[in-house]
Design a protein around this nucleic acid. Structure first.
Lengths: 199, 199
DNA sequence: GTCTATAAGGAGATAGAC
DNA sequence: GTCTATCTCCTTATAGAC
């Protein structure tokens, strides 16, 4: 256990990102100073610039990592065979994945306005790709006669808004378990898209 | 038309609020300076303090006015006689009212974290009162056998999240009219709460 | 890689002239 | 009511010692 001081470059980077994520989510990007982030990690502000060229890059980095992790995880999710099972998989996946990373999700939705144009474009295209996954499921389900929905694009956004609602109130120590919340929301999504009888 | 310069106290206050609302919604409370707000109104920063004791009070004032206007407007809305018509009234009212005041809504949802404890408590109780209106409709509808919903509190939040989703993407110059959006969302809400046959 | 020190500028808020 | 000027403090980011 030598070397408890000095270089920690393998762990300092992640620790900075974690601290920044927590602080940005709680207080907002603009309200958090580099000194605060450094303090949370036990550094002086200047040392942060060994890990990020500037504050804005730190934000973009957090958002991009989150969106890419989301896409990757969804890519590895078993989809089932019908649009119905794919929709259930999406609903449950979205709740589970996002509840486990609430700070990142919160930032991804609330700090888009803090991004400069290049970063904004990058993050938005990742989000559109993710929404496109759900849109594909809904369109296929409608074509197969499984869903009765009026407008696939509006419904896509409605489903995501509905599922994201969970993030604003769910508490790990509350009355409802994660499984309860998944079940309740899957039922609501199922009804919302007009998938009545089945399953 | 004398007096184009000098005292404008009857209009300056509202103009400051409007400018602050626009800027807070676009850039976030923490990212907007008093100088920016003053500039948008054509004042120097010091003059703002004739209208607000400090920046925080300006934010609280905006949020409180918005929530009170929301409650008042809903109070004047015709409710209909059944839980079904009350739910439809709520859905359409919520979309219409909030789309007309997107900046205020955006602030009300995203700047809660910027409030100091007293302001937070005041705004949150107003929000709870509003959510309670919808919860009452859902509970009554379930008791009357009109709705098949599993958990009234979860469903309340889900409906509000679903309706709020509109605010993130609707454009006045888009393909869908306000009436289209109201109709689509009312249909989705209707299905979501398990109100199948009727209407 | 991290520190201290510092540059250069912007923040919220106040005082006092007009 | 608004202005100018200013106080005090904090901001991002950099330079150079260790």
């Amino acid at each position: 256990m030598a070397r408890t001081q000095g270089s920690h470059s393998q762990t300092t980077g992640p620790r900075i990102r974690t601290a920044a994520e927590t602080l940005f989510a709680r207080h907002g990007y603009a309200a958090v100073s580099m000194r605060q982030i450094a303090g949370a990690v036990g550094l002086q502000a200047g040392a942060l610039y060994n890990y990020t060229p500037d504050k804005q890059s730190l934000l973009v980095d957090l958002m991009q990592r989150h969106m890419e992790a989301l896409m990757t995880a969804w890519g590895q999710e078993g989809r089932g065979e019908t649009a119905m099972s794919a929709l259930e998989a999406f609903a449950r996946f979205h709740i589970r994945f996002n509840l486990a990373r609430r700070d990142a999700v919160f930032i991804a939705y609330n700090e888009l306005r803090s991004l400069e144009p290049e970063g904004f474009a990058r993050i938005e295209s990742l989000r559109n790709a993710y929404e496109g996954e759900l849109a594909g499921v809904l369109t296929a389900g409608r074509a197969a006669g499984l869903f009765q929905l009026d407008d696939p694009r509006v419904t896509t956004r409605a489903v995501i808004a509905l599922l994201n609602g969970v993030l604003t109130w769910y508490r790990d120590d509350g009355q409802l378990s994660l499984a309860d919340v998944e079940d309740l929301h899957w039922q609501m999504v199922r009804r919302l898209v007009g998938a009545e009888g089945e399953r």
